Simulated scan of single mutants.
Amino acid sequence: MYAHKSVAVREGVEPEPWPPQEFAEEEPRALLDRTYTALRAEFAVRAPRVPAAAWYGPDRTVGFWIRRMAQETVVHRIDAELSAGQPVAPVPDDLAVDGIDELLKVFVAHSVAEWGDCFTGVLAGSPGRTFLVRTDAAAWRARTGPGLFEVTDGAGEGTADVTVSGPAPAVPRWPWNREGADGAAGVTVEGAPEAVEELRRCVVIATQ
């Protein structure tokens, strides 16, 4: 996870092939510690606006990877807590809000725009739906249709086919399917099952 990003930041290219064979010969925890330290060192000597290789065309900078790694670390921290049967530690509101924003815009909307064929099975037959994702700190409105997934900031006007709402730290766990034994952890999902499934399938494809 960390080593790949270090190469993208340091050398400005996506490393190929990946992963290197020598990684298989290193003890996993030592590998994690070593590559995490190396990535932090790369971030420390580069400003966020410095160019870096990235799969997200609108933002190929070091700042993109700082954001991405912060969000990825949160999700995998929750994975570890759920796997160990431990309570999920709170996620700061600002980090949680940014995580929802990144998921909807950087992952789903960008993926549908760039790799629309991957979503044909989900969106080709879409009647055109509206999704409202709302926390106590921010809101987003997404609109779908054949080959379409558009996201705008704010709750907008009118009703939505699906509304996902709850505390900011809890809402990102629902689309990432990290709900755990406590269910949706305070998240309320309202809408027809087929409409909810459309949103879920778009997220799954975009984040594979």
Results as ranks from 00 to 15, higher is better:
178 R>Y: 09
47 A>L: 14
39 L>E: 00
120 T>K: 13
205 I>S: 06
96 A>I: 02
37 T>G: 15
182 D>K: 12
99 G>F: 03
4 H>D: 12
113 A>M: 06
28 P>R: 12
94 D>L: 10
120 T>C: 08
127 P>S: 05
144 T>L: 03
171 V>I: 10
108 V>K: 00
12 G>W: 03
118 C>G: 13
17 P>I: 06
189 V>H: 05
45 V>C: 06
140 W>Y: 08
94 D>G: 13
51 P>Q: 09
91 V>E: 02
53 A>C: 09
71 Q>G: 13
163 T>N: 07
123 L>H: 03
92 P>Y: 04
103 L>S: 01
206 A>P: 01
170 A>P: 03
23 F>M: 13
6 S>R: 14
50 V>T: 15
56 Y>D: 06
177 N>K: 14
193 P>A: 12
66 I>W: 11
92 P>L: 03
171 V>Y: 01
7 V>H: 04
155 A>K: 10
28 P>T: 11
100 I>K: 00
80 A>L: 13
158 G>Y: 08
6 S>Q: 08
150 E>W: 05
127 P>R: 03
69 M>C: 08
50 V>E: 15
164 V>R: 01
191 G>R: 05
152 T>N: 09
105 K>N: 15
170 A>W: 02
122 V>E: 02
123 L>C: 00
22 E>P: 03
117 D>N: 12
207 T>H: 01
165 S>Y: 03
183 G>E: 10
73 T>P: 07
12 G>I: 03
201 R>C: 09
63 G>H: 04
147 G>S: 09
194 E>W: 09
169 P>V: 01
128 G>Q: 07
18 W>S: 04
63 G>R: 03
148 L>S: 13
87 P>N: 12
113 A>S: 14
5 K>S: 13
